[in-house]
Design a protein around this nucleic acid. Sequence first.
DNA 1: CTGTTAGCGCGTTCAA
DNA 2: TTGAACGCGCTAACAG
Lengths: 349, 349
Amino acid sequence: MSVDEHRSTPVPPTLHDVAREAGVSLATASRALNGSTRTVNETFRRRVLDAALRLNYTPNLSAQAVAKGLSSTISLLVSDIADPYFSSIAAGAIRAADEQRIATTMAVTHRDHERELELVRVLRGQRPRAIILTGSRWDGVASEHRLSDELAAYESTGGRVVLVSQRTLPFATVQLGNATGARELARELVGAGYRRFAVIAGDDRLLTSRERVSGFAEGLAEHGIAIHPSRIVRAEFTRDGGRQGAAELLQLGLDDVDLVFAVNDVMAIGAMSAFRAAGLRLPEDLAVAGYDDIATSRDVTPALTTVAVPLEAVGEHAVRLALDPATDSSTTEPVGATVLLRESTPPRT
Amino acid sequence: MSVDEHRSTPVPPTLHDVAREAGVSLATASRALNGSTRTVNETFRRRVLDAALRLNYTPNLSAQAVAKGLSSTISLLVSDIADPYFSSIAAGAIRAADEQRIATTMAVTHRDHERELELVRVLRGQRPRAIILTGSRWDGVASEHRLSDELAAYESTGGRVVLVSQRTLPFATVQLGNATGARELARELVGAGYRRFAVIAGDDRLLTSRERVSGFAEGLAEHGIAIHPSRIVRAEFTRDGGRQGAAELLQLGLDDVDLVFAVNDVMAIGAMSAFRAAGLRLPEDLAVAGYDDIATSRDVTPALTTVAVPLEAVGEHAVRLALDPATDSSTTEPVGATVLLRESTPPRT
DNA sequence: CTGTTAGCGCGTTCAA
DNA sequence: TTGAACGCGCTAACAG
């Protein structure tokens, strides 16, 4: 039937096949199937569509991208897709991209700067409409400059860059209001009667960690409360990091602490596990608060007090920013955060 | 300097630009940069590489794909990327794909058959090396046939299909051993002293749900225990579904039940929340077990008894299967499951 | 080992 | 409105 039968490697039908099958020219077939200006006779149109259906034709997106010099994909970089923080953002991003019929390519950096830079280079090869970088930016990390250069080069050749994090690089950014959220959390906790705090933070070069810690400290300072530096420990931005931070705090002694703020929920949950393993009753012996409001936060016992970040909306937003031609690199979209007081921080009488 | 300066739309440098800059032919530049057989003079090679670096050149992957008729991407379909079950599989898949320097395009079906079918059609346009479908297959759903046809068409034109689920379609499949895992869970639970069970299942056409329920029932039957049909409720495969299932069970009355098995952890956790809200103490008043061993399971209180599925490994495995040319469609890779008895099902004396 | 040339599948001019 | 011809960026013969 088809020419493919005698070929060794099977191959998808091309527009050429469709045109031949329909008895029209390549151009007509192209116009009937993918043309923007639908200036094609209804009869021919029908014939082409039928032929395409009969052949089970699917346009080769790569070829289209080459021909029009414009691809229909975006690239999304995350630190760790199994982390609910990033998978929520990804969910929103994929949905928004999907609405515009563009595909999302995902890549994972594992919080490795060099890897991130390398991925940007590789992904540029896809000529995506946009590259979205999620995850905290770093301070004092040399590769940030190279990353910035790479992204600038990409943007200078027609690409769009959107960051979901801090605006430390000159690109459109969805800012997360970490300082504000943490400050508000501190206020509410003081309002609930807490006075003596410890913090499990992340690497100090991690701006998200820094912003949350300083925002929290500011909120306390408004009430004349200070956190002793020795009560701020640093650990990895993961559940295990939270456990280790808690262990360190336990070793330091927690007699003069009534609430531990972990800079994200994943760490907070790890910390809760460690505290409990050490024999502490939560929240009676110790209160814990986190940040992000990942799904698990409401399911742990006691339910975790945290700051809700509309993660899926953030992802959608980033894509809209990326795909909206009007957006320029100086765009900064702040996203609000909401304090959620739950059982892990009961009011102190 | 460059011709782009006078152009309205900025454009990335092409191989042509690099060749000109290096003073060599297009072919030489191609060979030096991307050629497999590195039969190129070291001097020229240097010159080309330098030029590429100077121009910040990145090969256009779409063009490469068109030229060699082979793309460097795979497509991964998941039901819901924010669900830890799927994000874990995705993490493994992305990692494995990455190792082979191929990019992963993600799409989300939201458990909608029509959408899934449509996505397969769209994704075929990318000419991915492989399409990986994760998520339970359905029984008695008409679109399954059309999906199968679509996938067959894709495979007949050189693509590869891998399913992560049940082998109900004639494609390479990573099978999850749901029945076995559930049977083993039932045995262990009986061994722990439980005798009276209820089940929160999913849609009965969802094979994953069916397999887990029937496997569980089989395990009980070995000990002469049966589950009364009225003690099996059905709900959505989500946390809210779990809540609703629990609510239904509560309404039915749980006096004659000492353990509730929810067919996945997400539902089990939702159910725990609902049971607790209804005033039940867990696990004293009621034991609960789930399936999948998502990260949250060990963080809830009481820690959830479940069946561990090596999700990330499953994802990696699916990609290897997809990319290994030796694999044929009849390949079936079973994956073991491990019962994890935790505090939500303490031994009954 | 190098350069020339002909494609890959498709969009889009330009005449007809 | 249609079709022929060219170009997109790149690879893969082919000849030198």
